[in-house]
Write a protein that binds this DNA or RNA. Structure first.
Lengths: 128, 128
DNA sequence: TTCCTTGCAAATCGTTTGCATAATG
DNA sequence: CATTATGCAAACGATTTGCAAGGAA
């Protein structure tokens, strides 16, 4: 169960760090393919899952049924554009207090929440 | 593009209204099958999608990659148990103000948000 | 009769896995 | 050498779709 270094994993991590747009597994694959012609989709998926489990990256599920990945693991929220599908970071105050609000009349134990916002992104707002 | 009455759609809607546990398409299908032996999965999916588009039911995506459906379209929030996977309604105050918080420094237009909570449900909390 | 809806099966899409081989420690 | 990681292709699970036949207006 120990970890061994791999060129592929390193490249995946590097690629993710250069992007602010939360690419999908397929986007990672397609891009890496250009500099790493025979990397396989399976390897990309395996490593993304591994990195997410290690907490080095974030797996983002925004309801479009394909997972997005984010190398920025700090606390922040996402916005999804209904028109172009872009996943954008929001600069906003913490809303973690919603967990207390939710826990008030609840018999179980709330560990956390998942929140994302949707609407029209700045770019699409202008062009319409 | 107009709408015609269908026995199947009616049964699906009725079934959904009897349940508080936000069943998946497959659960709807399996249950209806008992009183409606040759309804097909495709029909169930088509009608669930149709009803959700009409706004008569809610499609809930809780990250377990299978959609859940809810006949209760009033404003409320959901909790997902990490242990048993149950999707439970939360009785809590509105947190819709998070939309304002999110919109403060954002150039686009925020229409809404999706929030769900996760942790251990009352039942699983007791039995552990 | 018109055209929406169904049942069925095949097709799609995103993701996972088995296996033999290659790379790492 | 002991193991972990890879590439490839086949397998998967959820959902969608094409098509001919059935049902509602």
């Amino acid at each position: 169960m120990s970890l061994k270094h791999s060129r592929q994993r390193e490249e995946i991590m590097n690629f993710l760090m250069t992007r602010k747009d939360h690419p999908t597994a397929d986007v990672v694959y397609t891009n890496l393919r250009q500099t790493f012609p025979n990397i396989s989709l399976g390897t990309v998926y395996r490593n993304l899952t591994l990195l997410a489990d290690l907490g080095e990256i974030l797996r983002i599920r925004v309801g479009d049924k394909t997972d997005h990945f984010d190398a920025d693991t700090s606390l922040h929220y996402h916005f999804i554009c209904n028109e172009c599908g872009a996943v954008i970071d929001l600069e906003m105050d913490s809303i973690e207090s919603v967990v207390e609000t939710a826990g008030k009349n609840f018999g179980g134990h709330i560990q956390g929440h998942t929140t994302f916002f949707y609407g029209t992104c700045p770019k699409c707002t202008k062009s319409s």
